[in-house]
Design a protein around this nucleic acid. Structure first.
Length: 396
RNA sequence: GCACCGGUGGCGAAGUGGCUAACGCGCUGGUCUGCAAAACCAGUAUGCGCGGGUUCGAUCCCCGCCCGGUGCUCCA
């Protein structure tokens, strides 16, 4: 997770450490006859007591009427759609001895109990995959709101599953990749992150290797621009007064960036606004209409962008090295892309030395030698750029 | 079979009842460069799954169909 720049949760709750809370919740429901015990010692939730059932998923409950697809007697439930809160012990299963009997909690009660314990009866946001809306989240709402008599989560955030190369991801399709797999193939962590966040969460995205290459190129452009801004800000030849037209455009696009994120996290639109700024600023610099006064707002835009997207700072090499080290330790060295090892075989110091030699050769107009060095570095994944103010380089 | 979500250029992907259908990548040509790279410019969907309908006007609304995803039993 940290490889993708994802923050760790403040609290990671474990179901097995919160059995008491779950039992208390079931007892509270039982006191209002919402939870009931069956002959085998299991507890079920009486959906008839919660008229709002189905409000999240918009399910038509007629489809799961009593006895339609489930043998009611077999489960001893009062209604087929009632769901388990607590399951009586079965041989070979973990169980706890509690005031409501010996057994283990049902799946849904765990989440209700832990969410309310840490966040209170009402909280802002509950997330989950699209597959969980029904029945899991629906059942959480029913249990929690019946127990607390308050609204449970105010907003629900359901992410769509992604497609991989146009198909659902599955081991049998052979399109199941872990983050480590992708890193070992030579893709950058930042590109993976950027691709994943570039499509709004509500939409199903098609994750492709071509898409990863696209993200890599897009990040290169953004990082290149960030570097260019830094260099430009230090350029003493630049006029101090700002280009008002450009500044207004940047302000406009920065507002659009934030508006897009405010609009249900539309990351695709937010991203577009930043690229608009990049292009406009590049044009201004290229046409010598850029002033030092323009730097401030653009720097603010980049900072705001990166506070969310977090791809400008290059930590890719270290992360890839981590993946390589892992593969070597696990005996999976064969999975490491050759380019990755080649790229890691040259140090920054060695690159600087070669570039200095090349610059020297070019001054003497020995272009053959200069180009030879450039090609040598290129083979090691190092790209040289000759700018007006000197040579810069980056790893591919 | 039923319900919900989606189907936009070569690819990824925004968006809107009527303005040139964003943005990124790719590709082609150009500027710059010793040559490249980077950056910039121009071009690249007469078109938004298919067929009807509503409307002065639909990619955007309605209906049907096709395709993809998810759910509709248990487990988590």
């Amino acid at each position: 997770m940290e490889w993708l720049g994802i923050e760790r949760p403040e609290i990671i709750a474990r179901a097995t450490e919160n059995i008491n809370e779950m039992v208390a919740l079931i007892e509270r429901l039982a006191s209002e006859d919402i939870a009931y015990k069956t002959d085998d010692g299991s507890w079920y939730f009486r959906i008839a007591k919660f008229p709002d059932y189905g409000k999240l998923s918009g399910k038509d409950l007629e489809g799961i009427e009593d006895g339609a697809r489930v043998d009611v007697d077999e489960y001893e439930k009062d209604a087929a759609r009632d769901f388990a809160l607590w399951k009586a012990t079965k041989p070979g299963e973990a169980s706890w001895e509690t005031s409501i009997g010996t057994g283990r909690p049902g799946w849904h009660i765990e989440c209700s109990a832990m969410a309310m314990k840490h966040l209170g009866p009402s909280f802002d946001l509950h997330a989950g995959g699209e597959d969980l809306a029904f029945p899991h989240h629906e059942n959480e709402i029913a249990q929690s709101e019946c127990a607390s008599h308050q609204p449970f989560a105010r907003h629900w955030f359901h992410v769509h599953f992604l497609l991989v190369e146009g198909k659902k991801m599955s081991k049998s399709e052979g399109n199941f990749y872990t983050l480590r797999d992708l890193l070992l193939k030579g893709y950058r962590a930042s590109a993976i992150r950027f691709l994943l966040v570039s499509v709004p969460y509500r939409h199903q995205m098609n994750f492709t290797f071509e898409g990863l290459a696209e993200s890599t190129a897009a990040i290169d452009r953004l990082r290149g621009f960030a570097r260019r801004m830094e260099a430009t800000a230090k350029n003493p030849a630049l006029p101090v007064e700002r280009n008002e037209e450009l500044d207004a455009l940047v302000a406009d696009k920065l507002a659009a960036f934030h508006a897009a994120l405010q609009n249900d996290l539309n990351t695709a639109e937010a991203r577009a606004a930043i690229f608009d700024i990049v292009r406009a600023a590049n044009i201004a610099i290229d046409s010598n209409t850029f002033g030092l006064g323009n730097v401030e707002r653009i720097a603010k835009a980049l900072a705001d962008f990166d506070a969310v997207f977090d791809v400008l700072t290059d930590r890719d090499a270290a992360i890839s090295q981590g993946a390589v080290a892992w593969a070597q330790a696990e005996g999976r060295a064969d999975d490491i892309a050759p380019e990755l090892l080649v790229a890691q075989s040259i140090t920054d110091e060695e690159i600087e030395t070669l570039i200095a030699e090349r610059t020297d050769a070019r001054k003497r107009r020995n272009f053959a030698r200069g180009d030879a060095i450039r090609n040598e570095l290129l083979e090691k994944g190092v790209l040289i750029e000759d700018g007006k103010d000197g040579v810069t380089w980056k790893r591919k």
